[in-house]
């Protein structure tokens, strides 16, 4: 860090204050800035592109409609008609994660989803929604979630704890999956890009050698775009499935 030429793959995750509000830890940071940008971009795009409410959509409006129908289909396929109550929630999650991931692909931009506290908070939100709605809708029948139907009674003492633990581990797996994918991807990208710089400083042979990490960087960039979209999709699909559990607790 002291040497400005040395590539530090961790530096991109550092949170720095942009506007400080005292020492309360509520400063407006680069992370906050990109969250605001993410929300702003999503809202601006979806609202402005559908301003005309065209019966025959143009391209920008079509993108909004496709996103809508994509998530709507995802929710109704996993959670049925009753699950459509949660469509705005799943849609917001999907768009937030997707756009935050995509923002992260732009050089020098901060990746909001590369911090576990963010992904964990989102996962806990899903978890809380599932538990609260599950109990509110089904009462104690929600606990049937841990008792799969059609399982013989003598297996239940084994199955129920497994189900319970797997249920409790959901927010962890949901958050770590997204966080780890994004974090690892960005570190890998930075490390390989760093090789180019380091090798490039070694003269002609170094330039030749730098070709290899250059190709890798390009390939990993493409892969990271895929991961960015895929992880948003996975997050949304799993959320829909968990919501389905809250609506229909019996397996």
């Amino acid at each position: 860090m002291a040497d400005p030429n040395k590539v530090d793959p961790i530096h991109q995750f550092q949170i720095t204050d942009i506007v400080s509000f005292g020492d309360g830890g509520i400063s407006f940071t680069n992370s906050a800035l990109f969250m605001v940008l993410t929300v702003g971009l999503i809202a601006a795009y979806l609202i402005l592109s559908t301003q005309k409410r065209a019966l025959v959509p143009n391209r920008v409006q079509l993108v909004s409609e496709m996103l809508y129908e994509f998530v709507a289909k995802m929710v109704s396929d996993s959670a049925g008609k009753a699950g459509m109550k949660f469509f705005p929630f799943v849609f917001s999650l999907f768009m937030f994660v997707l756009v935050a991931n995509m923002f992260g692909m732009i050089p020098f931009f901060f990746t909001v989803t590369s911090h576990i506290i963010i992904t964990f908070a989102l996962a806990m939100l899903v978890f809380a929604v599932v538990i609260i709605y599950g109990f509110w809708k089904n009462g104690f029948k929600f606990l049937k979630l841990f008792v799969p139907s059609g399982v013989p009674a003598y297996v239940l003492p084994i199955v129920v704890p497994i189900e319970f633990v797997s249920f409790l581990s959901r927010p962890i797996s949901l958050s770590v999956r997204l966080f780890a994918n994004i974090l690892a991807g960005h570190i890998t990208l930075k490390v390989f890009a760093g090789f180019i710089v380091t090798l490039g400083g070694l003269g002609f042979l170094g330039w030749l050698g730098a070709l290899l990490p250059l190709i890798m960087t390009v390939a990993i960039t493409a892969l990271e775009f895929l991961v960015a979209a895929l992880q948003a999709y996975v997050f949304a699909v799993l959320t829909s499935m968990y919501i389905n559990d809250a609506i229909h607790p019996g397996h």
Partner: peptide, 21 residues
């Protein structure tokens, strides 16, 4: 950094949810 991130996430996500829904 958790406090600040959580605060701004809550604000942003709430705003996003309201705008979307």
């Amino acid at each position: 950094s958790f406090g600040s991130q959580l605060l701004w996430l809550a604000l942003c996500f709430a705003a996003l949810y309201l705008l979307m829904s």
